[in-house]
Write a protein that binds this DNA or RNA. Structure first.
Lengths: 326, 326
DNA sequence: TGCACCATGTCAATCGGTTGACATGTTATT
DNA sequence: AATAACATGTCAACCGATTGACATGGTGCA
């Protein structure tokens, strides 16, 4: 059987209370006893049971993190940063891949509640899922979920403006925007709005393509093909994420478009991965590490300070001037 | 205060034992009572406390997953699949990004033990970290850690052979291999051994470049530059992962090498992401989903059946014939 | 000498749920 | 009418640690 606190006490020749005092650094303990206890713990290979501790303390130091999928490099990087910051602050991460499925996400929320997580960081595009009766500390990344949930995001509208304006400034006449499913309330919607606004401000007609929610990234190529067939005059494309942008680049190269001479392309997200593998792809960089840091920081504040005012944090984005828009 | 089982009992007008019986589906319960209890739970918004349950049952349904970092698309995809399969089997994932740091990994192991995880799935290149006195169910992916820990991997030696042989078959005369730090006992070592063997079998001298462990992917470019300067005759490169392969491709294009005419390149891993964004890059595909599935399956077996024999699972890899070796 | 502080122990309650033992009563079944 | 199965309740122990209340001595200092 696993050794427990009692066993440590026995091995060290002290009372269980004393062991607990050493463990939690409370009350008076002589250096001598402290060492005796640590010795005993090492000797019998004792490992405290955090379940029992948490049960009593009503504090698990667990944080639930819900994202669509770590397969997507944006979320992979985001989660990696979140986990790092959590670790720094002593939190452990329960990972949930919702795969954009509302049903799954709902089950994850319940699971997290059953597990008594201290808080949740969620990237969700399904509003109205969360039962507001429970006042669990939570941060929504990049999307407004309800007035009880604090939002951390980058400035998607600004990003959309930056991207579109960059294409306009470079002299593109026929700029088209591609984005994901618009029925989901994703931040991409703000990017699209910004695109439309900038287009109108410049006397252009916004044209929009929407890729369906596909199982395989590669299937998005169909939509791209369609775009080029229906709009051979296109000379600027703003894709709402880098993967789409790269697929466009791929298509363009295969079909004899010179980039950036014939066609300029700008993506969105600017993960380290894509920026490294494709420095030529212009993109809007989201401050991924900062989003993660801010989220963890604010969540921690919510957890430790009750009645924290819920301010919305909007972090600035920046333009990565790749060759695809030169 | 959060409602507890007692409160449900009160609300439903039954005894706590009855509620517990309903919850755990034990003993005799009439349909009527069952519904009354469920009603009460919904009404007072009751959520069972899994800490308390787990404490008594000595079963948390938690699985620790340790990987270097989900920022890397290979691990991002792997983790995503692992999490999915875990979810199917009722396990929850505690995510740990070890960042290749032995010290961090050690702390994570301890953390997982404190949290009473049912088992661990680990991608670790640091042998000898785990204290073998504790017999925790565990699976090591792609690396032998100790004789008490079951290994699931793809056939790295075969992968190395396939890759090198492909380059040889396509007529490359000067094939060079690039891989990561060899002081870490990574599976890349097997790939390198296979490369060396195939080279010798074909009467060639293996040449090896090693990229240091860098903070930024882009820094690997220095090593690549060096390789080309020292070996301008190179006409075939086997990179031990796709990101390195793509950096080589990037360098080659920038420096006027025609791929595959002047230089053939093959990578390793074959994540869905890279295969989609770079179908032209030949690579060795690891069966990521299968590795994940097998790992979860075997871990579950270890957890439920004590004294499971520990067989090593080696899954086959396959060649993705991209244009970079045509 | 007396008081404050240090060091440790005993004991029981608590966190929230689970379970076995046992009692009591109601329905079916034969 | 006897027996078995069904339905529910009471009670206490338990999972492993934490904590407050209280007791007992020792040491240092005013």
């Amino acid at each position: 059987m696993k050794p427990k606190l009692q066993d440590v006490a026995k091995a060290a020749g002290v009372s269980p209370t004393t062991v607990s005092r050493v463990l939690n650094d409370r009350g008076y303990i002589s250096q001598e006893t402290r060492e005796k206890v640590y010795q005993a713990m090492k000797q019998i290979n004792y490992i405290p049971n955090d379940l029992a501790r948490s049960l009593y303390n009503k504090r698990t130091h667990l944080v639930g993190v819900i994202v669509p999928s770590t397969s997507n490099p944006f979320f992979g990087e985001l989660v990696s940063h979140i986990e790092n910051y959590c670790n720094e602050k002593g939190y452990k991460v329960l990972l949930c891949n919702s795969l954009h499925e509302a049903e799954k996400e709902k089950k994850y929320w319940e699971m997290l509640l059953r597990n008594q997580v201290d808080g949740v960081i969620v990237v969700s595009y399904n509003r109205g899922l969360i039962d507001l009766r429970q006042q669990l500390p939570a941060i929504a990344i990049d999307h407004y979920l309800s007035k009880h949930i604090q939002v951390v995001s980058s400035d998607n509208f600004q990003g959309g403006q930056l991207a579109t304006q960059a294409l306009v400034d470079k002299g593109c006449q026929h700029i088209i925007h591609i984005n994901g499913v618009s029925t989901l309330e994703t931040p991409a919607n703000d990017r699209r709005s910004a695109y439309q606004q900038v287009m109108r401000e410049n006397g252009r007609t916004p044209i929009n393509y929407e890729v369906p929610d596909v199982a395989f990234l590669a299937d998005n190529m169909d939509t791209i093909k369609q775009l080029f067939q229906e709009h051979p005059e296109v000379d600027g494309i703003f894709a709402s994420d880098d993967m789409l942008g790269l697929l466009v680049l791929q298509y363009a190269r295969q079909h004899g478009y010179r980039v950036p001479e014939d066609l300029k392309i700008i993506g969105y997200d600017g993960t380290e991965l894509i920026r490294t593998l494709h420095p030529e792809l212009a993109t809007i960089m989201q401050p991924i590490a900062q989003i993660a840091e801010k989220s963890v920081e604010l969540l921690d504040l919510q957890i430790t300070n009750k009645d924290q005012p819920l301010t919305a944090e909007v972090l600035p984005v920046s333009l990565w001037k790749g060759d695809s828009i030169r």
